[in-house]
Nucleic acid binder design. Structure first.
Lengths: 157, 157
DNA sequence: AATCATGTAACTTTTAATGTTACGTGATTC
DNA sequence: GAATCACGTAACATTAAAAGTTACATGATT
């Protein structure tokens, strides 16, 4: 399959959403994520069902966070995306009578299982607020503040 | 991309190889792995370069183990396959100026990195001899012995 | 009533492993 | 030394699932 970029994309989108007062339309988010509005709607659908986001139709509508950042773990988000296949590496699930194949598959499965547990464990320990902190750290490293992103300066009309 | 089954396949093939006196042809291995001889040659090429297998051309030729099973870790094999992409999940590598995207990518990368370390760590701790042991355990559970696989019984000519 | 924005279905594109075919090269056998 | 066997490798087709795209229905606002 093609590489699955939904998780980092959604994280990116949520950071932007947390930074906006008004709802963001799928079109706006698509611009930020360099993709298409339909992809945004499709990807975010799971987060809406999970209660992480709300979507509003009509004029002034769009997407909004339904929780504060510190209430959203990355694991929740991953789950809300449908817990998509983590590995490009796999093994045949068809039950073969060959015991050597079974042993080979079992060894592969054990390693993948442990790796998956590590992955989910880390996602569970990180919240969107941690990402926002990381974002602000990066801002500060450039000598900027949050404000610098929202207006062009005092000379602005 | 499609799922990558090379690792479990090679493990399976090596177990069969360890069980044979004569070299196994690509054709024979392809039969065991339910695939094609060309796929076998292509997949095994890396293991030959890595010194895990030797291949012999001509009459009576084929593939043979170049080491004993306890000298082969799964990590070596994974490396010999070219350390193929482990994850179906990824993130855009294109450097975007957006610090929110950077934060999102970094968080994803950290989780993937740790998962990868877990995976490689386990592969490093397991040898093909461990797989052979597992195979024999499975055999015993069926009330069979190694011998049962190699002849049809005492009445056999 | 017009417009905006989501909801969703249907289809195309993309990408890398896998499958397939073909042919070259080296080794063995007779 | 010619035929055959088996690997080595290139070139192309197939496959699968995310992503991209298009289109249209539905609901909310003005």
């Amino acid at each position: 399959m093609r590489q699955d970029n939904r998780l980092p994309r959604v994280l990116h989108a949520l950071l932007h959403l947390s930074d906006m007062k008004d709802p963001a339309t799928s079109e706006q988010l698509a611009g930020m994520l360099n993709t298409n509005a339909a992809v945004v709607r499709r990807t975010m659908a799971g987060l809406r069902e999970q209660g992480i986001l709300t979507s509003i139709k009509g004029h002034g509508g769009g997407w909004q966070l339904a929780k504060t950042l510190d209430q959203i773990t990355l694991a929740e988000i991953y789950e809300a995306l449908g817990a998509p296949t983590l590995f490009a590496l796999g093994y045949s699930n068809e039950s073969s009578p060959c015991l050597m194949e079974k042993a080979a598959n079992a060894a592969t499965a054990r390693a993948l299982q442990k790796a998956s547990e590590t992955f989910i464990g880390i996602l569970s320990s990180v919240t969107m607020a941690d990402l926002a902190d990381d974002f602000e750290k990066r801002l500060a490293e450039l000598g900027l503040t949050q404000d610098d992103l929202h207006h062009t300066g005092p000379q602005d009309s």
